[in-house]
């Protein structure tokens, strides 16, 4: 099968890639770019572990073909930490004990980031809506909500 040429920007770095016609964005990130922070939990868009940000929107990278996002800007969990240190969301997740096994964490962080990027002062209900597509079996969600609230406060300042 013919490969397709695409160009995507991931965490600020541009990549010219050849992708297969069935290659999902999740596959490209994990297998071609070796960025394994994005997780595969269900492959059908139900768990949100593979959530990344594509052109400012949280999407399930298991439900998008890479060829569909040619030219897009993508942010993954690997893009959060910068030279100046951890992102306020990462700090808040650590501070509020919003992590247990950590498998849902990258997707949670991406959904939360997409929210705060467009809505820096979300209500609790808005946080829940932003994270309703991210399943977590360990934490019971409360400390994740606490963390997003904390990040919103710190980041807003």
């Amino acid at each position: 099968m013919a490969k397709l040429d695409v160009e995507i920007t991931v965490n600020g770095a541009r990549h010219k890639l050849e992708v297969g016609s069935q290659e999902r964005l999740l596959d490209t990130l994990r297998e071609q770019l070796k960025m394994t922070g994005t997780k595969e939990g269900c492959s059908v868009g139900e768990c949100g572990a593979c959530t990344v940000i594509v052109d400012d929107q949280a999407v399930n990278s298991c439900l998008v073909l890479t060829a569909q996002v040619d030219g897009s800007e993508i942010i993954t969990v690997e893009g959060l930490e910068s030279k100046s240190g951890l992102h306020p969301l990462q700090k808040a997740f650590i501070e509020k004990q919003a992590i247990q096994c950590g498998f849902c964490t990258p997707g949670m962080l991406m959904s939360a980031l997409a929210l705060l990027n467009t809505n820096p002062t979300p209500t609790k209900e808005e946080i829940k809506t932003a994270l309703e597509g991210n399943l977590c079996r360990c934490t019971g969600y409360q400390q994740i909500i606490d963390a997003v609230e904390m990040a919103a406060e710190e980041w807003g300042v």
Binding site: M35, E78, L80, F93, E95, Q97, I99, G102
Partner: peptide, 14 residues
Amino acid sequence: RRVDAYEKVTGKAK
């Protein structure tokens, strides 16, 4: 804080 938190919030945890 959890001692494994840093790896888990950065996607470094394998």
